[in-house]
């Protein structure tokens, strides 16, 4: 094959890939990540992953399989050692520190441990996210109560986090994550600390958020939920994608 032809092909391939990535809100290509203090053992290996706008995706796998590392790459809390990470059309591998704040405003995040500001009440915890994006107090006074009633906490806006149950705290975290209308919601084991009833409620909320058009990525250990919700399931094992199935189920070892 002539050199020229080879080059043409290469160019076409990369052009296609470029087009490819723009269809997806999350696009990972050959991503590798190893922690510097892990003796070269990679946390993620050759990850290829595409998530379209409006999808609902579960990420499952054993503890230590790399789920949180994946979420951190999407948040640009970590950067990939190699490969491409494109989220909301932004190439995170090339992003400078100064741009990270703006980028994160297009995402919402919730964690297993809620991460609320303990010394501020429910209202202020949610308003906080709006203040950061410089919304006016007038808008905040409108948006925050709306969000709180969406998650079913309208009556508790004055409570401090420690006066709330785990389920209620996670709803506050969810309201905070959603109040700036992110295009993607990332949830790292959001129900890991909750009882089955609260787990169900939170999952229903996530589904509702998804129905309103937000792309939702949920890391979970909860077999029953995954099996009953019939969503796309990506299974990680020791840093590689073991399976990726539409309407999938929780895979046992």
């Amino acid at each position: 094959m002539a050199e020229k032809e080879k080059e043409e092909k290469k160019k076409k391939k990369s052009r296609d890939k470029g087009k490819d990535s723009s269809k997806y809100v999350i696009y990972l290509e050959d991503v590798n990540k190893a922690y510097s203090d892990a003796n070269g053992v990679p946390a993620l290996m050759d990850i290829n992953l595409k998530i379209k706008k409006g999808e609902f995706v579960f990420i499952v796998g054993d503890s230590g399989s790399g789920k949180s590392t994946l979420i951190k790459l999407l948040l640009r809390e970590l950067t990939a050692d190699s490969g491409k990470v494109i989220v909301n059309d932004q190439d995170l591998t090339k992003m400078r520190h100064a741009q990270v704040a703006k980028f994160r405003r297009t995402l919402g995040v919730v964690f297993q441990d809620f991460r609320l500001l303990k010394d501020r009440n429910v209202y202020d915890n949610v308003a906080f996210a709006q203040r950061i994006v410089l919304k006016s107090e007038k808008e905040i006074r409108k948006n925050v109560p709306n969000m709180l009633s969406m998650v079913g906490l309208a009556g508790k806006y004055k409570a401090k986090p420690k006066q709330l149950s785990g389920g209620e705290q996670q709803r506050v975290a969810l309201a905070r994550a959603l109040v700036n209308k992110p295009t993607i919601l990332l949830a790292d084991e959001p129900t890991g600390n909750l009882d089955p009833r609260n787990t169900n409620d939170i999952m229903k909320l996530l589904e509702k958020v998804n129905e309103n058009g937000t792309t939702v990525v949920v890391v979970t250990h909860n077999r029953d939920i995954v099996n009953s919700m019939q969503k796309r399931v990506i299974t990680l094992k020791q840093g590689v994608i073991l399976s990726d199935e539409e309407k999938g189920a929780y895979i046992d070892d």
Partner: peptide, 16 residues
């Protein structure tokens, strides 16, 4: 540390 972390996750600039 926790508070700063949360602020960064929500998209606060360094200045903020």
């Amino acid at each position: 540390k926790e508070e700063i972390n949360i602020m960064k996750y929500v998209g606060a600039t360094d200045f903020f």
